[in-house]
């Protein structure tokens, strides 16, 4: 554990070593998120609510999404880089250390650009989320689960590289979950909606946590924990089995 914390601290230092770039990236992301808030605000001037989602709820969803995805793609940045790491043989360094490779990989890269999302999400929650101690607690728990679920999903689809040798399918999966999580899952119906609560668990990334903050519900909470656990276990297993097929890419090119 001490090792993991030390790696994360080093990754954080590394990412913030260039101050100017760091603040620039944070600002770009915050501006980007502001545009989305603007979009939702304009949207809700014409539409009072969409299948139970009014502007306040959607902004809550957006706060959970930006905070959670910011943490997953920012602090656990390697979660979406498994294909490229495997192809380039970049697991070699990790495998020479006496550590759990997946855990080490996940914390060993911080992408500051996504930390801007996290900062924005927290501020947005404080501004429009009517924070009370209970709501704040559910927000924090929901965000952490959302982070874990998103990271697990990205690792899982990234592990396809061990079989296919390319990152194309995982690229598609990354697009899919990020786009689909950005909107209330209830705008979809039928099979699509079913999909968002199972195979591509976008509904659990932001919609369910946002709903929980507004209306704590044991079934929702249990489902969120369960699906996160399932995806985490799947990701772990896929990565561990995948390592058996790891070919170290073209790393150490001059053999």
């Amino acid at each position: 554990m001490r090792g993991t914390v030390a790696v994360l601290r080093a990754a954080m230092r590394d990412a913030t070593a260039r101050r100017a770039a760091f603040w620039w990236q944070i600002s770009v992301m915050v501006a980007n998120d502001l545009i989305w808030v603007l979009f939702w605000m304009i949207f809700f001037t014409r539409v009072p609510s969409v299948r139970g989602w009014d502007s306040e709820k959607v902004l809550l969803l957006f706060a959970v999404l930006t905070t959670g995805s910011g943490l997953a793609l920012g602090i656990l940045a390697n979660c979406r880089r498994i294909p490229v790491l495997v192809r380039e043989g970049a697991l070699d360094e990790v495998l020479t250390l006496p550590v759990s490779p997946l855990r080490h990989l996940l914390v060993s890269r911080v992408d500051t650009v996504n930390l801007g999302d996290t900062v924005f999400g927290v501020v947005l929650f404080l501004a429009v989320g009517r924070p009370t101690p209970l709501r704040a607690a559910v927000f924090v728990a929901g965000v952490l689960l959302s982070t874990a679920l998103l990271a697990s999903f990205l690792v899982l689809i990234g592990c396809a590289v061990f079989v296919t040798g390319d990152g194309e399918s995982s690229g598609l999966g990354t697009h899919a979950i990020l786009v689909l999580s950005s909107y209330p899952a209830d705008i979809f119906q039928g099979a699509t909606k079913m999909l968002l609560y199972t195979v591509v668990p976008a509904g659990f990334v932001a919609s369910v946590p946002a709903r929980l903050i507004d209306r704590p519900d044991l079934t929702d909470a249990a489902a969120l924990v369960l699906i996160t656990g399932i995806f985490a276990a799947l990701a772990w297993t896929a990565f561990t089995l995948g390592l058996h097929r790891y070919a170290s890419g073209s790393g150490w090119r001059r053999s």
């Binding site: 030390a6 790696v7 230092r13 590394d14 070699d92 020479t96 250390l97 080490h104």
Partner: peptide, 28 residues
């Protein structure tokens, strides 16, 4: 210990000493 001319254990934007601190924690 492993040393590979093509790869680095050290993080380019950190000082070597900072990387050592991380490695020391990993090695307990």
């Amino acid at each position: 210990g492993t040393l590979f001319g093509q790869r680095s254990q050290l993080w380019p934007d950190l000082t070597a000493r900072q990387s050592f601190t991380m490695l020391a924690a990993i090695y307990g």
